[in-house]
Simulated assay, not measured.
Amino acid sequence: MDWFYAIVYGIVEGITEFLPISSTGHLILAGNLMGVPWPKEVKDTFEVVIQGGAILAVLAYYWRDFLKIRHIGSDRGQQRLWLGVVVACIPAVVLGLLFGDVIKANLFRPSVVAWALIVGGVIMWLVESRRATPKVHDIETIGVGRSLLIGAVQCLALLWPGFSRSASSILGGMVLGLDRPTATKFSFYLGVPTLGGAALLDFIKSREILGQIGIVNVVLGAAVSFVVAYLAIGWLLRFVSTNNFKGFAVYRVVVGALILLLIATGVMTNGSLA
């Protein structure tokens, strides 16, 4: 059944990594509902690897845009964009290095994730209901100040597992005046160094565990994650061009409530996931 678990994990990761609905919450739910028998350290390492597949999907989807970095020496727009991305990563890097292990040990449990989904859904609904007319419509004009604030808001996902990195960065961008497509695209860009760095660090720490999974299952899960994430990115960009995020807000509340129900009925344990 390992190949089946790899495929399902890859699908869940690919769909949820860049949508504002928390990949952490959905991977927890999927793993519990399937009764995956893998040891915890194997699950953790496998999830890091397939997250790498989702990151590669961003690079593949925007490959033409990423090639423009070759002209960063003379292109002021590229300079502003990548300076903003780098600055936006700083809060998460600092917070992760200082408190990452403590947060995982004390907050990484299903009930915390469930409430993060619910509260994040409510905030998403409120942001959509009360936001002003967007002022920023181009990813190259976000600016360093806004980028830093978006990066700070992104830390909600680290401080509160289940809040969702994409949700926090997209909502932060919208509150700061970005339109939905621009906030969403910047969230994709920001995910490359943020998620890529975290994935590489965890891989270096735990690479020997991959042997317990089997190379075929590792490649299968990462490949499925890559393909599904690529499709999800394109779908989300088309969706936000004509729709708001209220549907995602409702969905988050429903999933969070489902996790709490499974905990209350004993179907899911509420032990630490770290």
Rank of each mutant, 00 (worst) to 15 (best):
Ala249Cys: 04
Leu19Arg: 02
Phe188Thr: 04
Val86Gln: 02
Phe248Gln: 02
Pro110Cys: 10
Val119Tyr: 07
Ser241Pro: 03
Val113Lys: 00
Arg146Gln: 11
Phe239Pro: 01
Leu176Gln: 10
Ser166Leu: 11
Gln212Cys: 01
Val255Asp: 11
Val87Tyr: 02
Cys155Glu: 04
Ala249Lys: 09
Thr269Gly: 14
Ser272Gln: 14
Ile90Glu: 10
Leu95Phe: 13
Arg238Asp: 14
Trp63Ile: 07
Phe163Trp: 14
Gly31Pro: 00
Arg109Pro: 00
Val219Phe: 13
Arg207Glu: 09
Ile103Asn: 01
Arg131Ala: 12
Ala88Glu: 09
Leu273Glu: 13
Gly271Thr: 07
Val267Pro: 02
Arg109Cys: 07
Gly234Asn: 13
Leu220Phe: 05
Phe99Asn: 04
Val49Arg: 05
Arg146Cys: 06
Glu140Ser: 12
Glu47Val: 13
Trp82Tyr: 14
Thr24Gln: 07
Leu236Ala: 08
His26Cys: 11
Lys205Gln: 12
Ala157Leu: 10
Trp38Cys: 02
Ile259Gly: 02
Lys205Ser: 07
Gly31Leu: 07
Ile259Glu: 07
Lys135Tyr: 04
Leu159Trp: 06
Leu273His: 08
Ile215Leu: 12
Leu56Glu: 08
Leu67Asn: 05
Met174Cys: 10
Glu47Phe: 06
Val240Leu: 09
Leu258Asn: 04
Ala257Thr: 13
Gly191Trp: 10
Asn106Lys: 15
Pro37Glu: 10
Thr24Trp: 00
Leu195Ile: 14
Phe203Tyr: 15
Ala60Ile: 11
Ala132Ser: 15
Arg238Lys: 14
Gly52Thr: 00
Gln51Phe: 05
Ala6Leu: 08
Arg76Pro: 02
Leu56Asn: 09
Pro161Phe: 01
Ile204Met: 14
Val216Thr: 15
Ala232Lys: 03
Arg146Ala: 09
Pro39Phe: 09
Leu117Tyr: 08
Lys205Ile: 04
Leu195Trp: 05
Thr269Tyr: 04
Ser241Thr: 13
Gly221Ile: 01
Met34Cys: 06
Ala223Cys: 12
Ala57Trp: 04
Ala157Asn: 12
Ile170Asp: 08
Phe188Cys: 05
Met174Ser: 04
Pro181Cys: 12
Ile118Phe: 07
Gly121Arg: 00
Ser166Glu: 04
Phe245Pro: 00
Val175Thr: 13
Val49Cys: 06
Arg131Lys: 14
Glu41Phe: 11
Phe239Glu: 10
Ile7Gln: 06
Arg252Tyr: 09
Glu17Asn: 11
Lys185Asp: 08
Leu200Arg: 07
Gln212Arg: 15
